[in-house]
Design a protein around this nucleic acid. Structure first.
Lengths: 210, 210
DNA sequence: TTACAATCACCCCGAAAGGGGGATATTTTA
DNA sequence: TAAAATATCCCCCTTTCGGGGTGATTGTAA
């Protein structure tokens, strides 16, 4: 076990200039040591166990196995490492995929060097750094449509539908009649112009009604 | 229309000491003006339109209408205002409710004054500030359980169940037989020890399997 | 190489649920 | 006051659901 009081960092990034740039910027910080850098996941997979990094800076756009697919595999090889995703693209889906796969944080490449260094520290301390762009996106993803055509009750019913509940289960849960649930659902279908549970949920989620 | 180049801030917080403390700390910053402070939503509702704030600091724990319920109502009165939630509790549900109701950010009360001031600036510029605790929680909420008992296919099927899809709809979507979907679902039920869609989804979501 | 998990597919059955159609009454809110 | 929200009831037919059981193929880990 290596027990120096530096944070061991590995960088996986295919662009040589960016890779060396980050390595230089982070390496010169006291308290950090770049133990290795790799141009692809395949390269990293062979050696990274010996590197024993505490933090991995991982690019999304990699040749071969991309960052998102690499993430769970890296976690399997070095389970204790925190992974910081570093990318130029801040697409909603990518971010959520990365977080779902166990990324500890997500930074866009326009982040300043000091921001990145600060983020590594935060990650190491168990925090979750997110650049402003990412935070904004996450917040947006949680924001309900304020002009929902659905009433409170209808929204409530549709949420339970989203939980896989049947009409009778919903009725019990809301202390209303089975037939009332039915008419709520009928009204939901009318308003959303659909005629099935799946379509109602799809439309509702697309428009952030639930 | 008021067109001074200061950020107009309103504070809604029932604790007088905290309220005045924030008012003082923020008011002395150049570029900020505390246009009003209120001890409850009810008080605020009467005057806040005239205050015309750009940023509202909103406490969650309020007498009468609580912060979460107040949020959409405030947004209705002053639609252009950014709302920053300020609370001692960082419970997962509260945060997500707040973000769903249109909060622009979420700060725990242990945040430093400078952090709060900085957050107001970020919010005004369209960013989404989140304190470390919150970011960590949000990230955690996105993180899938890496030791899911469900296979890839089963996870996929269960996700479609969560979209309200019927067996036949799932079969079509995955290009497999209706009966195959059935056996996947049966295996899911076995593994999760449930016997209905609703329970499967509940267990799966609780354990972050989907 | 053996054994197990995963994926796929098929059969029977009865009960439950879903969706289309329609009507009506009370309360809340704009 | 009129519209929207909420609640309840009826008919009908089709689909879906979940329980039971069986078995083939593939891939992978022990």
């Amino acid at each position: 076990m290596i027990t120096e009081d530096v944070i061991r960092v590995v960088i996986i990034e295919d662009d040589e200039i960016i890779r060396n740039g980050y390595a230089f910027l982070i390496g010169k910080e006291s308290g950090f040591r770049i133990v290795n850098t790799y141009a692809s996941f395949e390269d990293a997979a062979l050696n990274i166990k010996e590197d024993d990094p505490e933090v991995i800076l991982l690019d999304i756009e990699l040749p071969g196995t991309n960052g998102i697919d690499a993430l769970p595999k890296l976690k399997k090889i070095v389970p204790t490492a925190f992974v910081l995703i570093l990318t130029v693209y801040d697409s909603e889906k990518l971010i959520f995929d990365a977080l779902a796969s166990g990324a500890s944080g997500y930074l866009t490449k326009n982040s300043s060097a000091s921001k990145i260094v600060e983020s590594i520290r935060e990650v190491k301390d168990g925090g979750g750094p997110m650049s402003i762009n990412i935070a904004r996106m996450v917040i947006k993803s949680f924001m309900r449509n304020q002009n929902s055509p659905l009433s409170k009750r209808e929204t409530q019913v549709l949420e339970l539908v989203g939980n896989g509940k049947s009409r009778s289960q919903i009725a019990k849960e809301l202390f209303i009649d089975l037939e009332t649930v039915r008419s709520h659902i009928k009204n939901i279908y009318l308003k959303l112009d659909v005629n099935s549970r799946a379509d109602a949920l799809k439309t509702a989620r697309l428009n952030k009604l639930i």
